[in-house]
Design a binder for these strands. Sequence first.
DNA 1: TTGAAATAGGACCAAAAGAGTCCGAATTAA
DNA 2: TTAATTCGGACTCTTTTGGTCCTATTTCAA
Lengths: 158, 158
Amino acid sequence: MIRMSKLTDYGIVLLTYFANHPEGSEYSARQLAAETHLPLPMVGKILKLLAREGLLVSHRGASGGYRLARTPEKISVAEAIAAMEGPIAVMECIDAPGMCMHEGRCCVRGNWHKINATVVKALQGISLVDMTRPLVENFVPLGRLQSGPSPSSLTSVP
Amino acid sequence: MIRMSKLTDYGIVLLTYFANHPEGSEYSARQLAAETHLPLPMVGKILKLLAREGLLVSHRGASGGYRLARTPEKISVAEAIAAMEGPIAVMECIDAPGMCMHEGRCCVRGNWHKINATVVKALQGISLVDMTRPLVENFVPLGRLQSGPSPSSLTSVP
DNA sequence: TTGAAATAGGACCAAAAGAGTCCGAATTAA
DNA sequence: TTAATTCGGACTCTTTTGGTCCTATTTCAA
């Protein structure tokens, strides 16, 4: 299945929790685990990761905790995912060029690059603030990729 | 990593191979493996799967083989992925409602639904024919989701 | 009629990734 | 000093993936 890991799932829940509260608020792993009902060891692990990746700022010692490194409008879902899972790449050949034997003669790789870029851009367009309220599809309905030289071929899609 | 399986990768390569050849052409697993340089047992497995899912039609017996079940314009990348991996769902709660303990109080689930739908639609907009030639980004640059009630929050994205 | 060449449908296995826990060390507020 | 934190790992168990292989069954053609 095309699925993000639980780590990412929880990570975004936690980040959204920050976005839902006054800016600059600091919370410990313990508090966040209690509030979100996620297991404490997991929450600890995730917060550490997010801090290392620069999305959170940590504050050590007694009464320490974490806060967002930037305002939530400036943190995108794409960044959050990348922090948890590494670069977004639907195919191995996207972020690991040279690993695939067939790279030379593969005729679909270029297209995967563009498809991947489209997904990334869509996710970059969603901030943590957006995640705190219902999303609405824009009047520009969806990002379509279209085949270049030749005509048609898109109209057939339901 | 957010990555499709090799099965899916190979599956789309194979489907694209059909799209690149005269309509209705039939090829055996052996032929396809030779042409695409993919391991024969894998190719066999994938073709069986695609046939079971209705994207290919199989023809048993000596000099049997497979052909596309529909014209390649009418088969989308989204369908191909779904055939190989099951429903496209970036989060478990999308295609397995009830599995997540936090479903009741989760405040981001609705948004994941919409994000998922956006990705699916983008992939539905790409047919096998499109995959046989370079994709070009449409003038409508990309599908953006926007938060409803409140303004701004999108302008900050690089 | 027979045999070769296909697909059908699984079982099977090893390796990798995921999910989750736990521990000792360093840091800091009180 | 002590208690509450974060930090950085190691560690285990389970699931998924990637890949192979085997035994039907079907069909074409000699």
